[in-house]
Amino acid sequence: MKFAFFGSSLVSAYWNGAATYYRGLIRNLAARGHSITFYEPDAFERQAHRDMPDPDWARDVVYGTGSLEPMRRALADAADADVIVKTSGVGIFDHELEAGVLELKRSGNVVIFWDVDAPATLDSVHADPGNPFRALIPRYDMICTYGGGKPVVDAYLALGARHCEPVYNALDTDTHHPVERDPRFACDLGFLGNRLPDREARVERFFLAAAAARPEMRFLLGGSGWGDKPMPGNVEYLGHVYTRDHNAFNCTPRAVLNVSRESMARYGFSPATRVFEAAGAGACLITDAWEGLELFLEPDREVLVARDGDEVAAHLDALDPARAAAIGQAALRKVRAHHTYAHRAEQLEAVLEGRTAGLAATAAIA
Rank of each mutant, 00 (worst) to 15 (best):
residue 2 K to Q: 11
residue 5 F to W: 15
residue 14 Y to Q: 01
residue 14 Y to D: 07
residue 14 Y to E: 00
residue 16 N to M: 08
residue 16 N to Y: 10
residue 19 A to L: 06
residue 19 A to C: 15
residue 21 Y to W: 14
residue 26 I to P: 11
residue 28 N to I: 03
residue 29 L to G: 00
residue 39 Y to N: 10
residue 40 E to V: 05
residue 43 A to T: 08
residue 43 A to F: 13
residue 44 F to M: 15
residue 44 F to W: 15
residue 52 M to R: 12
residue 53 P to C: 10
residue 53 P to A: 14
residue 55 P to T: 11
residue 56 D to G: 10
residue 62 V to R: 13
residue 78 A to Q: 12
residue 79 A to L: 08
residue 84 I to Y: 12
residue 87 T to M: 07
residue 90 V to I: 15
residue 93 F to T: 11
residue 94 D to Y: 08
residue 95 H to D: 15
residue 99 A to M: 09
residue 102 L to T: 05
residue 104 L to I: 05
residue 104 L to W: 04
residue 106 R to D: 05
residue 106 R to N: 02
residue 107 S to K: 08
residue 118 A to S: 11
residue 120 A to W: 14
residue 122 L to N: 03
residue 122 L to P: 02
residue 127 A to K: 06
residue 127 A to L: 09
residue 130 G to K: 06
residue 136 L to C: 03
residue 137 I to A: 07
residue 141 D to W: 05
residue 141 D to F: 03
residue 149 G to P: 05
residue 150 K to A: 15
residue 165 E to Y: 04
residue 169 N to D: 00
residue 170 A to I: 00
residue 173 T to V: 11
residue 175 T to G: 12
residue 180 E to V: 13
residue 181 R to P: 09
residue 182 D to C: 04
residue 185 F to M: 04
residue 185 F to E: 07
residue 186 A to Y: 14
residue 194 N to K: 07
residue 201 A to G: 13
residue 204 E to P: 09
residue 205 R to D: 12
residue 205 R to K: 13
residue 210 A to M: 10
residue 212 A to D: 10
residue 212 A to G: 12
residue 222 G to A: 15
residue 224 S to E: 06
residue 226 W to K: 00
residue 227 G to T: 10
residue 228 D to E: 15
residue 232 P to G: 07
residue 234 N to I: 07
residue 234 N to V: 07
residue 238 L to W: 00
residue 243 T to M: 11
residue 244 R to E: 12
residue 244 R to Y: 04
residue 245 D to T: 11
residue 246 H to T: 10
residue 251 C to V: 10
residue 251 C to M: 02
residue 252 T to Y: 01
residue 253 P to Q: 07
residue 257 L to I: 03
residue 258 N to L: 09
residue 258 N to M: 02
residue 260 S to L: 14
residue 261 R to W: 13
residue 262 E to Y: 15
residue 267 Y to N: 02
residue 268 G to D: 02
residue 268 G to A: 05
residue 271 P to F: 01
residue 273 T to L: 07
residue 280 G to Q: 06
residue 282 G to N: 00
residue 283 A to Y: 01
residue 285 L to S: 06
residue 285 L to N: 03
residue 286 I to T: 00
residue 290 W to K: 01
residue 293 L to H: 01
residue 294 E to H: 10
residue 294 E to C: 03
residue 301 R to A: 04
residue 304 L to Q: 00
residue 306 A to T: 04
residue 306 A to D: 07
residue 308 D to I: 01
residue 310 D to P: 00
residue 312 V to D: 01
residue 314 A to Q: 10
residue 319 L to F: 02
residue 320 D to S: 02
residue 325 A to P: 00
residue 327 I to L: 01
residue 334 K to N: 02
residue 339 H to M: 06
residue 340 T to V: 00
residue 342 A to W: 01
residue 342 A to P: 01
residue 350 A to R: 14
residue 350 A to K: 11
residue 352 L to K: 02
residue 353 E to H: 15
residue 355 R to G: 03
residue 360 A to T: 14
residue 365 I to K: 12
